[in-house]
Amino acid sequence: MSQREGQVAKLARSIGARLILAVNNSGFSLILAWRAARWTFVPSQLWRRRGMILRQMYVAGVESLPVTLIVALFIGFLLSLSAGVELARFGQQAVVGQLVAISVCREFGPFMTGLILAANVGSSMAAELGTMKVSEEIDALEVMSIDPARYLVFPRLLAMLFMTPLLTVFSDAVAIIGGGVIAGTQLNVSWAKYYQNVLEGLKLYHIYTGLLKAVVFGVTIAIVSCSEGLRTKGGAVGVGKATRSSVILCYLLILIFGYFLTALFYGKGSSSL
């Protein structure tokens, strides 16, 4: 075998190994999702884990609220200003409310909430479970016949399932208000006119498709972060690696799933148009 063929073979092996690893990791995450999600339908488990579920809801919701609202406010400012200036050239600045409301509710609201939660909550989930893994606490749970998916992942999954859409509602509202502030101060559009335009333009399906996206993003963040944490190897370095890869994976998946959901709801041939 020539040197070139040897290099090609090495490259092919490397690609193959990465593909196998990716499939393996995806399988692990899907199985984990199933093992955790099935407890959602067991009332006794919901009651037994209420403390941990509420704690995770507090971490995901209340502790993430300030940063989410600040980001939402500035997204509203930014959208209103950049779109309003262009619309003003055609004397159409009055429709800025509609533009801000639709783009925030459909895309930006769930998208930025997802990114904030991935960085804020997902990373901490991966680090927490990763630390538990390297300090043998996960092994201890398994040996005690306590399923980590039920004990650790299920409360986190449920918390993210509820708190991501809730945070999205708040961030949508704050972004629309922020857009209104800019419309009033920079574009000479009165608040009443802006508000009326928002109500005229915004349809119910803009809101529920956005909230559905938020649910998907929340579940994705919980599962990806927990599975990265549970797969941690190699001490402190491993925990750092798991945390970083969980954030990167969450960002990528939020973008990819976001696109496909938009295509599903608003793409060619979709019924909601």
Binding site: E136, A140, E142, V143, M144
Partner: peptide, 13 residues
């Protein structure tokens, strides 16, 4: 596993 009790190196509490 219910037949096993394990005392981990650092307690794993």
């Amino acid at each position: 596993r219910m037949k096993l009790g394990v005392n981990f190196q650092f307690g794993a509490l």
